[in-house]
Design a protein around this nucleic acid. Structure first.
Lengths: 146, 146
DNA sequence: AAAGCTGTAACAATCTTTGTTTCAACTTTC
DNA sequence: GAAAGTTGAAACAAAGATTGTTACAGCTTT
């Protein structure tokens, strides 16, 4: 089981906006071409990024723009924006009907929950440690060396 | 998107084997009752735990037993045993067809891969830091205080 | 007014997880 | 050795999530 590709698509989108945004209109069609992902999916992801205050889009005129400086956007922000993991449910799917009549069944949740939360937090902290500025910088560097 | 519940089921199973194993046969039917999960699923998980050298099972006689000391089993071992995440694919599902004709499309993988691996490693290290001995100890403590 | 783009809904296709049915093979007990 | 209880495993169904597709209303610019 994997985290939905909307996350990597979102990072790809933001990178494209910064790399190409000054010289052209970055439309959902263009992004669809660069990512290989359907334009409607792109618009959905853009809508989620917009809700999170990461990008701006407008009907009619077309073209997405960044709403924040790249060094103020972390991978965690993007991850949360596209909601690959439901915040209520958490990263781990717990089996839903442990038997309350069994001593283990009625207590396993209590024992596990804190630890599963810690595991999820470890992952999220690592995501918080990377900014999109780094991602875009690396990308531009590689492009310039090609 | 979530990590399959087979993982929490597996932890539940191991806990039951230790808690109840001395006084009764811990069969797939019993585990099905305690977890609320279908007995065939339980047998599948047991088969994966057996392949990983964590438990022993036998046809006919019935009843699962631990093949290792609890302090030698970490949550990571269980997680890997049940293969909730494909080892080849990784935790993050990358969009599969970025456009090689686009400078961003043909380099985004290079830029992201190392960082995604680091995020996954952070999660896995946290899983490695918890042993089943702790889980079972906590569970027994709670049961004794009920 | 025309062209191009976004926003969004509805539906289909695909994949994964989980459940169900079924039956062969094995062990213990009578 | 027969019966009962159990595991191992295959095949298929059910349910849910992701991704793709189609369609169209609404906005902006020219």
């Amino acid at each position: 089981m994997q985290i939905a590709s909307k996350f990597t698509v979102a990072v790809h989108i933001i990178t494209c906006i910064d790399v190409f945004g000054e010289q052209m209109r970055v439309t959902s069609d263009f992004l669809s071409g660069s990512t290989g992902v359907n334009a409607v999916i792109i618009r959905n992801v853009l809508a989620q990024l917009r809700s999170a205050g990461i990008v701006n889009t407008r009907q009619g005129s077309g073209g997405a723009h960044l709403a924040k400086a790249l060094n103020e956007i972390t991978l965690y922000d993007v991850y949360m924006a596209v909601e690959c993991v439901d915040n209520d449910e958490g990263l781990f799917h717990f089996h839903e009907n442990p038997n309350a009549k069994c001593p283990v069944g009625r207590n396993i949740h209590k024992v596990m929950d804190g630890r599963l939360t810690a595991v999820q937090a470890a992952m999220e902290n690592e995501l918080k440690s990377v900014t999109l500025a780094e991602i875009v910088e690396d990308t531009k560097k590689i492009i310039s060396e090609e």
